[in-house]
Write a protein that binds this DNA or RNA. Structure first.
Length: 687
DNA sequence: TTTAGGG
DNA sequence: CCCTAAA
């Protein structure tokens, strides 16, 4: 059966023979299904994931010792904990609850003897390849293994859990002396057979991790995921002893113009990751089961505080774990959590990769997004973004509040901010580039002189805009009005548009390098969400405590029913073409096959999406060109749509009527003249 | 899960 | 795109 499936769908380019389709009740479908890969990632998700971790941190706070220092970043705890454990070991309950370390969770799950099936399922994703930022030459090899050994271990893991997704975590690890260590940690903990390796190798240096490869200037010009600097080639130097280079993570400018990040997965055809499944389940669950009962958030107050947002990293799994423990906490944060968890579960960036955040103060430039950029000879603009940070948050808690509540408050503020959506703005010479359709060339981003003038901003989206939409289509955000919560109007200052106040201008000045060589910044990080000192940006203009306090509420009441809409991803012409072609051959009503045939690798396109797209295409084709919107679809394609639609409508009717056994495709020459000539539909011969 | 449609 | 009834 498996083999059959492979034959049927495993090869692209083969003509899928027409198979008469009968009513569902009649035909039997092959049971096996390939899970869809879900490698999508968004910068937003990264932020959300971070926030999620923060949330976790907050969760554990109540029991936290205040003297322990709120200045101790969450990540620190985790690192410390990790560093102190030589071997994987089951965690005690308290440790689990502390939840300050990702691996703690992993370990706990893996190490719990009777964790049950569900836990094991989650453990599937526990194979972690973690990259730990490392600067000093302090070596890795905490386990006395050399590189070869580690690679060997990696391979073993690959072999054993190849069908599972892996996580790539970049975690800046801070040692007691304040230095940041760097390395990779391969982590796996399934079924108690915990495994953990730390790995340090210059070849795997984190420096390379953040390279943002914009393969096509047009990509940026066409509202693509420029805001996903996290899509990048991961570990280009790691060569798993396997031919499947699917291990590589990287940008891909395919037909869908989608920047995808391939998972590190030795089973290339793993169709649907547990994450995706979980995500969908989660979405559903959150949407219908819990949301309505979600309590309000107005019990919390916000105001200024020096307390920075704690850096942290977060994994999808943690998100789920959060979810599961959600009801046990008094912390009201339904929506925030929803968003965060959903986002992180949505494939995350880099296939579960996690951002890491340098500890406050370690990175002097942490407040800005630093990047290096160079123009390669192949007319591509390549650069890396070293870090992002979120705008400042104002926190206000009573003196009598517990540290735990403070953490939760911060968490809420963060989630509120993230929950409203974020998008990336591009600055060239200090000017915002609002026209997303301009090419890098036109914008001058490709010119060396301007490279050092390139900057990015991380901006909250306007509440009016769907965060998802903005993410998917930045142009909508860029042109939209400043962020403005109805209850917390932004102060207009002169010509400055409110957004400016909320955004975090991040310049790459001094960071841009035309040198293609990777730089070796100790503070290379995927994302820096640390709240810098006290001169951060205003996330929520502190007009008054009241307004501040209302932010979360307004967020919540604004669009309570939305869990997290998928980002909008308009079909490109090439995608449309592929769709049309597939439908021409397969007909309507076989969306799953269409998906498998033409969009098998487009994880973000479900068969429902294709069906919907076809629907709109038909509609589009019927209306006048003036009424059409979005990227214009070539008329000839639309004509084909109409033709195919008409044909298949007719054919389907025919089939259901009395032609059930007639195999016929639009391009099948042997199609009987009788059928083809019925009605006004003309025979189609698709070349 | 997949289809088919309404929202 | 989302949500669902049906199959």
């Amino acid at each position: 059966m498996v083999l059959k499936r492979k034959v049927d769908y495993g090869f692209r380019g083969f003509q899928v023979p027409f198979v008469p389709r009968f009513p569902r009740s009649v035909r039997r479908r092959s049971a096996s299904k390939k899970p869809a890969k879900d490698g999508r990632a968004y910068a937003f998700e990264i932020l959300a994931s971070v926030a999620g971790k923060l949330l976790l941190e907050g969760e554990s706070s109540a029991s936290s010792n205040a003297s322990e220092g709120n200045h101790q970043p969450a990540i620190s705890q985790g690192v410390v904990e990790k560093g102190s454990q030589d071997k994987v070991r089951p965690l005690k309950a308290e440790e689990i609850h502390r939840g300050s370390s990702v691996e703690s969770i992993f370990i706990s799950e893996a190490g719990t003897p009777k964790s049950g099936q569900k836990r094991l399922e989650h453990a599937e994703t526990d194979c972690v390849l973690e990259c730990i930022s490392n600067n000093n030459n302090n070596n890795f090899d905490c386990w006395g293994k050399d590189e070869t050994d580690v690679k060997s271990e990696i391979f073993k893991l690959e072999s054993k859990f190849g069908h599972h997704s892996h996580r790539l975590l970049e975690v800046p690890e801070e040692s007691s002396d304040g230095n940041v260590k760097n390395g990779f940690r391969v982590e796996h903990g399934a079924n108690g057979s915990g495994f953990k390796k730390s790995y340090l190798d210059n070849k795997f240096s984190v420096k390379d991790q953040l390279e943002l490869c914009v393969n096509s200037p047009a990509l940026i010009g066409t509202k693509n995921n420029v805001n996903s600097p996290y899509y990048r080639k991961l570990f280009p130097n790691i060569s798993f002893p396997r031919n499947g280079n699917d291990i590589k993570l990287g940008f891909r400018d395919d037909d869908e113009k989608l920047l995808r990040c391939k998972k590190i997965c030795t089973k290339p055809k793993a169709f649907r990751s547990p994450q995706l499944i979980a995500r969908r389940k989660l979405r559903k669950m959150l949407a219908y089961k819990y949301w309505k009962a979600a309590p309000k958030l107005k019990d919390y107050e916000y105001s200024r505080s020096e307390e920075g947002v704690k850096p942290l990293y977060h994994t999808r799994k943690i998100g789920y774990r959060f979810e599961r423990t959600q009801h046990n906490t008094l912390f009201k944060r339904r929506k925030f959590f929803d968003r965060g968890s959903v986002l992180t579960s949505d494939g995350g960036f880099s296939s579960d990769s996690v951002s890491n955040l340098p500890k406050k103060g370690i990175d002097r430039d942490s407040h800005r997004l630093s990047s290096k950029l160079h123009v390669s000879k192949d007319s591509h603009v390549k650069f890396s973004i070293k870090s992002f940070k979120i705008p400042e948050l104002y926190i206000d808690v009573p003196e009598t509040a517990t540290v735990g509540s403070l953490k939760r408050t911060v968490m809420e503020a963060v989630m509120t901010l993230l929950g409203s959506g974020m998008h990336v703005g591009v600055l060239v010479q200090g000017k915002k580039v609002r026209d997303d359709n301009r090419t890098l060339l036109q914008t001058g981003i490709c010119r060396k002189e301007k490279l050092n003038k390139l900057g990015f901003t991380l901006e909250p989206n306007s509440i009016q805009d769907s965060p998802a939409d903005c993410l998917g289509d930045p142009s909508q955000c860029e042109t939209s009005q400043p962020i403005r919560s109805p209850e917390t109007p932004v102060q207009e200052s002169g010509t400055t548009h409110g957004l400016q106040d909320l955004s975090l201008p991040i310049s790459t000045e001094n960071f841009v390098e035309s040198n293609p060589e990777r730089t070796t910044s100790p503070t290379d990080t995927i994302a820096d969400i640390t709240t810098p000192d006290s001169r951060v940006l205003v996330a929520v203009p502190p007009r008054s405590p009241e307004t501040l306090a209302t932010v979360p509420v307004s967020q919540k009441t604004k669009r309570p029913e939305l869990v997290q809409r998928r980002t909008r991803r308009p079909f490109s012409v090439s995608e449309v073409e592929a769709l049309v072609e597939a439908v021409e051959e397969l007909g309507t009503g076989r969306w799953r096959d269409v998906k498998l045939r033409a969009f098998e690798n487009a994880d973000h396109r479900t068969y429902v999406d294709l069906k919907d797209k076809w629907k709109t295409l038909v509609h589009t084709a019927k209306i006048s060109p003036q009424q059409r919107r979005g990227e214009p679809v070539p008329q000839d394609l639309l004509n084909r749509v109409l033709t195919a639609h008409a044909y298949w409508c007719h054919h389907q009717a025919k089939q259901h009527g009395h032609g059930k056994n007639r195999a016929l495709t639009m391009k099948t020459p042997e199609a009987s003249a009788e059928e083809l000539s019925v009605g006004a539909v003309q025979p189609l011969v698709i070349m």
